[in-house]
């Protein structure tokens, strides 16, 4: 790790100001950024920690009924505090990494990073969430732009994420055996106006919506509705752990399981 300056502001405004300086970078829980720095693959001049900003932390229910999670809220807090409000979201958070990761890592860091195998992107896209930054509201459908790529601009901070609460939802994570990130993760959410299916871990383009499944499930919310669908392996990830064909297969199997388990 190279040396860096460290600041820990207590307001969003101060954080934004600090991030305006050359080569400054936001620090959430550090669960992605610090290992990258230790490997000397990232070299920020200044780290601006967001975890001292109270307004960025916590889970609450908004006026419209949506569950709103502060941008610097840890996975452990979401797992505990969203359990009654949005059980599928809380369950997803409770299976990210290990206790150390869950008590440091934050939702803002996860969504900003947009790892193609991360869990939260599936929840955000699958719930049609709104990602709120210090500048604007971004619909999840516009936010994810390919692996490790998002709509965020330089220095922009995720302040909160608002999840409309579905009638039924479930996240199925088929783990990559080494990292235990998602080799394929499926988030299914049933809303009154239709079903959303978000797929993580599988595609070279990062998290995406499986629209055929959404259509089929919107008219018949049962695993059998998927039986005639097939998933192409084109554009799926092939790596040490799984081939594109296997990932494509898992997308269908795990979607069926998510539907069956949705509650």
């Amino acid at each position: 790790m190279y040396n860096f300056e460290f600041s820990k502001p207590s307001t969003v405004a101060d954080a934004v100001a600090a991030l305006a300086s050359e080569d400054a970078q936001a620090l959430g829980g550090g669960q992605t950024l610090l290992p990258t720095m230790k490997q000397r693959l990232a070299q920020p001049e200044t780290l601006v920690s967001l975890t001292g900003i109270d307004e960025l932390k916590g889970v609450c229910q908004g006026d419209n009924g949506a569950v709103v999670v502060g941008g610097a809220t840890t996975h452990a807090t979401v797992a505990a505090d969203a359990a009654a409000l949005y059980p599928a979201l809380a369950a997803l958070a409770s299976h990210i990494g290990d206790p150390q990761v869950r008590n440091r890592g934050t939702i803002g860091g996860s969504l900003a990073n947009n790892d193609p195998a991360a869990c939260y992107p599936a929840a955000a896209l699958g719930s049609g969430a709104t990602i709120t930054t210090n500048k604007r509201d971004i619909a999840a459908d516009d936010y994810f732009q390919g692996m490790f790529t998002t709509a965020l601009e330089e220095g922009e901070i995720i302040t909160s994420v608002s999840f409309p609460v579905p009638e039924a939802a479930n996240y199925q994570k088929f783990v990559q055996p080494a990292s235990r990130f998602a080799m394929v993760g499926i988030f299914v959410a049933k809303y009154s106006d239709g079903v959303r299916v978000a797929v993580t871990g599988a595609s070279e383009d990062g998290v995406y919506r499986w629209s055929e499944a959404e259509a089929a499930l919107s008219s018949n919310f049962s695993a059998s509705a998927l039986s005639d669908l097939s998933v192409s392996s084109d554009g799926m990830i092939t790596d040490l752990h799984a081939t594109a064909a296997y990932r494509a297969h898992l997308v269908k199997v795990m979607t069926g399981r998510a539907v069956a388990a949705a509650s």
Binding site: F174, P177, H241, A242, T243, A245, Y246, H249
Partner: peptide
């Protein structure tokens, strides 16, 4: 015997 190999 990874899942992918067994499935294949």
């Amino acid at each position: 015997l990874t899942p992918g190999r067994v499935w294949a």
